[in-house]
């Protein structure tokens, strides 16, 4: 069985995000890139699944940039190989552009189970996994906190809010998106770091996947970025709990007008 994992290189959570002069895009200058945190749970689940059932794990990334550094680091966590889709045609990609290219690569590799993070830490759109599944004609289960595979059958538990869990069973193929709590990602052991450089990492263009620029032309384009408004001064309400709660509600209703 081939298990795919879609990962995305996103600005490290400690990076300072800045807007280009003119506001047409975010600046990539000085940004430290890292695999999106939720994708780390996806990698771990794929590797654990492989360890339990056999098979191989293939990483997939799609970007206009070279993501091989982050992908190589992810290979040190246990996956067997990687496909990096790198093409200038993805410079203004939207969710569907990424999903189109990823789905093509997944199909080409013959994967039947795909994990990915529930969302990427940059765009935070929560769209690509469902789009990949749709393009492949597969079902998908999102926000999964527990996953079991028995032959071709899977059981996935997902949190639906309010402490309620939903259990979904089905057969492969499927796309699973990882929620925090699915597992504890391992550290890259030193022997695996040394081995990672020898693992196959294929860089593919859109043309290699049989795609044209039109196939990945974005439907959604972001043209104007603005920093969030400066936070105003903090108001500390004085008095006992009953008084401050009453005053808080009054201010929320009459001044902030949010109630």
């Amino acid at each position: 069985m081939k298990i795919g994992v879609c990962i995305k290189s996103t600005p490290d959570t400690s990076s300072r995000i800045q807007i280009n002069p003119g506001g047409d895009d975010l600046s990539e200058a000085g940004v430290k890139w890292a695999t999106s945190p939720y994708d780390m749970f996806a990698i771990e689940e794929a590797v654990q699944t492989k360890e339990a059932t056999g098979g191989e794990v293939i990483l997939f990334s799609a970007s206009h940039q070279d993501t091989s550094k982050e992908v190589r680091k992810a290979l040190a966590l246990g996956p067997d190989s990687a496909v990096c889709i790198q093409d200038d045609g993805l410079a203004k990609a939207d969710s569907l552009s990424f999903a189109t290219s990823l789905a093509k690569a997944i199909e080409a590799e013959g994967c039947t189970l795909v994990f990915t993070g529930k969302r990427a830490s940059d765009g935070n759109n929560i769209q690509v996994p469902a789009m990949v599944a749709e393009l492949l004609g597969w079902p998908h289960v999102s926000f999964v906190t527990d996953f079991e595979l028995d032959g071709e059958s899977f059981k996935a538990v997902r949190a639906v809010g309010g402490g309620v869990e939903e259990v979904i069973t089905g057969n492969l193929p499927v796309v699973i998106t990882a929620e925090r709590g699915l597992n504890s990602p391992r550290y890259a052991k030193l022997p695996m770091i040394v081995k990672a450089k020898k693992k196959p990492l294929a860089t593919k263009s859109l043309a290699d996947l049989g795609l044209t620029a039109d196939d990945v032309a974005p439907i959604v384009t972001l043209s104007n970025y603005e920093p969030p408004a400066e936070r105003g001064d903090c108001i500390i309400l004085e008095g006992d709990a009953a008084t401050t709660a009453k005053e808080l509600v009054r201010r929320l209703r009459e001044e902030a007008k949010v109630l």
Partner: peptide
């Protein structure tokens, strides 16, 4: 090398 960088990050 790339291994040194990954080692440091780990």
């Amino acid at each position: 090398t790339e291994e040194h960088r990954m080692l440091r990050e780990m």
